[in-house]
Each structure stands twice: as C-alpha cells, then as structure tokens.
Amino acid sequence: MASRFRQALNSSEFVVTSEIAPPKGINLETMTHHVDLLKDRVHGLNVTDHQSSVMRYPSLGGCLLIKERGGEPILQMTCRDRNRLALEADLLFAASRGIQNVLCLTGDAVPVGDHKEAAGVFDLDSVQLLKAIRELEAGRDLGGNTLDGDVEFCAGAIVTPEADPLEPQLIKFEKKVEAGAEFFQTQAIYDLDNFASFMEFARQYPVKILAGIVLLSSAKMAQYMNNNVPGIFVPQALIDELAAAVAAPDAPKGAGLAKGIEIAGRMIREIRENRLCDGVHIMAIGREEVVPDILAAAGMADWQPTGRIV
C-alpha cells in the first residue's frame, strides 16, 4: 500500500515536510518532544543520517520512533557509511517496519565530520541507490537474487537549484528521475525568481518538488551560509532585513530569530499561494520547536495535513 506521504504527494494538497536530527547518544527526550510537536503538523518527517558526517543515533531508529508516535517518517539514507549489502539490508528492515519513504543522498564527505579518519564507503551513489530501491521492489537484490516478500518504497532525492555551475546538477537530477526518484527536496532556496526558473525545468519531469526552507536566525548565519555552504545563496536584501531587525534600539532578545521565522513564513506563503511547486520541506536545524511558528507566519496556523487523493 502506498505510504501516507506518497498519498499526500499524489493529492492536490500542498505538501509540508520537516526534519528532525537524532541526538548524540540515547537520550531521546528532545527528539521525542520534536516528533510529538510536529508529527500532526506535517505530511512527513525526515530523520537525518549522521548529518554533516557527525555520528549520531541512527536515522532508522529515529524513523521507528516517529512510527511509534503515530507520525510519518522519511528515512534519510546516505551512501557514505554502508556498502550495498548494508544499504539493502537496512531498506528491508525499514520496509518490514512500515518505513516506506526514503530520501537517497550521497552523504557529506567524511573529513567534514567528527570521525575524520573513518573510511568513506560510497560503494553506491545516490543514483545507484535509487535504482537499487526499484530493484528491491521488483523482487531482486543487487546480487540478482530473489527476495522473499514484497517491498514498496516512496523514493526521493535532493537537487540544488542554486548550484554554480548548475547544469551538472540538472543532469544528475535527470539521472535520479530516470533511476526512479518520485520526489525531490531542494537545497535551501531564498531567491524565488531563481527558483521559478528552476521549476520551469523541473516541471518537464513526472516528479514532485518540495522547496527547501532553511530557517535563518541572524544576518551572520546567512553570511556564513553564503560563504561556506555549497549551493546556498541568501540575497543581500534578506541579510539586510535580518540585520535591521536586531539593529533597532528597542529590538527585543531573539529579534533575529523572529525575523527569520517571518522570512521563512513569507516564502512558504508565496510558494503556496502561487503554487510555485508541490510543497515545502522545512529545515529548522536545531530549532525544530519553532516549525509551528513558521507555519503560523505562513498563514497556516490552522492548516492540517490530510493528503486526500484527487
């Protein structure tokens, strides 16, 4: 049966997803709190897979927790840490526990993380992982052997609409579509005109696009991302807006974050009202508790994800 998330993607509804990051260790209190706070506010919750190559509680564990709490998990799966046997086995495990949504990622490089001497595996890449998922669905593993029991996945991938140069990323996007990706989450976007021209390209393909919304909390953070995070471009006007919010003499504590929430909400509202794409993926990076505030700022305070099939 199609997952709830896939049903939402295929409905007429504007799709909203968010993500949570597992803890370093087994204290799951904060993660559980975030899951409970968000599970009924979005169509699906991503769980990151050792994000930035920092070892954490596993993505699969986080997805099981979401499942137990009645939410809809989206399993992030990178190719950095497992060879094809381990990836396939984890996919079987996920399927057996009702985790059917998978986001296929290459994975950050090992040296950017906290286990700098570890082997980077990359036995498969994101395109090959998508193909592997479709192979498993066809009843075969990558060794060509028959599987006992059917599996079904809603498989997606990522794309970077602000990459420079862009064309290599678009070629890879096409390869991911051909390999079986049915939805895409984008890297953070801030320039909606640029995003609209990306969407003109993406609309040619039978896939759903969720625009990546990364919460900005200060002008400094925006500058940092511009200088250090590949494929992210925050326009100067937004940086100025964030700076002005805290520069006012009567600016309250947390004015930067409040402005960031407002900006994120404003973008979501514009994307939704103009139907620029099929939905948004909200990344609040360490501030998951403000996701409801972002939705409220987008005029979606009373909005409920349902996912009715058209």
Binding site: D108, A109, G120, F122, D125, Q187, P230
Partner: peptide, 27 residues
C-alpha cells in the same frame, strides 16, 4: 573525493570540492 561515477554531489561549489576549497571538483 567520494569517487562518484554518476555526476557531482551537492557539496560542489563554484567548481571546487566540499572537502577543500582549493581543490577542483572532479565533476
């Protein structure tokens, strides 16, 4: 850096590699 054979990862930036801004992105 990752030995990818199907095109660049999302870490590529202005023709450079995410591991080292001085290193060219192979793709």
């Amino acid at each position: 850096h990752k030995g990818l054979v199907n095109g660049p990862c999302g870490g590529t930036n202005r023709g450079k590699c995410e591991v080292d801004k001085e290193r060219d992105c192979a793709w």
